[in-house]
Design a protein around this nucleic acid. Sequence first.
DNA 1: CCGTCAGTACTGTACCGTCTAGTCTAAGCG
DNA 2: CGCTTAGACTAGACGGTACAGTACTGACGG
Lengths: 222, 222
Amino acid sequence: MEEAHPSSETGGNVGRSADKRRAILNAAEDVFLRSGYLGTNMDEIAAQSQVSKQTVYKHFGSKDALFIEIVTTMTNEAGDLVHPEDVPELTDFHELADYLCDYAYRQLAVVLTPRLMQLRRLVIGEVVRFPDLARTLYEHGPQRAISALAAAFERFTDRGLLTVSDPQTAAIQFNWLVMSAPLNQAMLLGDSAIPPPAELRRYAEQGVTTFLAAYGRPAAQT
Amino acid sequence: MEEAHPSSETGGNVGRSADKRRAILNAAEDVFLRSGYLGTNMDEIAAQSQVSKQTVYKHFGSKDALFIEIVTTMTNEAGDLVHPEDVPELTDFHELADYLCDYAYRQLAVVLTPRLMQLRRLVIGEVVRFPDLARTLYEHGPQRAISALAAAFERFTDRGLLTVSDPQTAAIQFNWLVMSAPLNQAMLLGDSAIPPPAELRRYAEQGVTTFLAAYGRPAAQT
DNA sequence: CCGTCAGTACTGTACCGTCTAGTCTAAGCG
DNA sequence: CGCTTAGACTAGACGGTACAGTACTGACGG
């Protein structure tokens, strides 16, 4: 029964060990997200990953270490997912509006996921115990997005598509104008309050509309 | 030595019991905010409130009950603090801008307090275990503020000071335009990241400026 | 044979909620 | 004033459970 998964096709001892490690990580992610840090016990992780507790402690020295590993890995992966790739060359005001809408929606669709919402709750709840994890989440999440947006807004302003005097502030406002409402709602009301895609698109559009009403070049509007 | 505080001047057994209850609540608030729900043990609460554990269980039946009592009380009190009182009669666009700035700043100053920030973290971290507490916080916090704002914006629009077609959306956007950036920052970076009053005022002004740029009557601006 | 792992027992600690035995205070009564 | 009663409180022990991390035994694969 234990041989159902033949070491992910490598067959070697090394591959088997790596498989165990992967299984532990998967199980630990699940359990930590479901039960929180203190509410998680290592026995359950071992059981769910079909691995003995000793193996868990062989791969990750302690509960703390495993928790930190899980959270930083998830944070990094999530940060890469929303990574704003190179901004295309836009010349038209309409193009800009469409681009901002798409960007906003993509960001919303990634962040407003049960897994990532629960990660956020988890990290926030453990700010006192693990301040570094929270700082990492902040830097890889909001801060990263805002920096990229600020740079983009500066270029758009140079190109005459926006009238932004303080790109940093504009970026912060755009980011939260789009994300805040659904994020806070889902944060406190639980995963069942995560809006469906159509509604997320509405949030994106409303945010972009207001942003452009404030920062769009007056001559170019409508 | 025990007679330093003579039962809050009533002297009676009833007054003494009420004092104990108050002491327990104070200690419990402190310990829960500091250590979280699971991280808190009842012995510490009893010790810190200078009360025997038996008395704690006499006043509040269980750890859950005490926790719920603490959180709902704090939530209600905080909600009352920022309660938008009756909006004055405004006729001038400049008056409106000043009023919105003051309102925004007051809200920020109340919410961005170590005690309330930690309450927020605590509730968010326990969303799964205590969903009702999170819902209460949402209703007494953001939702309450947004409803009041929406009503005010509708009146301002009738009076010709704003051009708001969807008061609910405008209220949501105003609320988060002002609060999001410092709130999220302090949430993840800890109490040391709570901005000083001068900076809070800047957040308020920037939020109001962008809001009015989008929703202020074009003729009346500047 | 040697390394890796499963299974499991074990240690030490922490903690919720209860229980017991006794103290303190206010009040009623002779 | 002395005695009693009732209720609230203290201090600490205790039962039962949970859990982090370790130790040990036996099996399996190369």
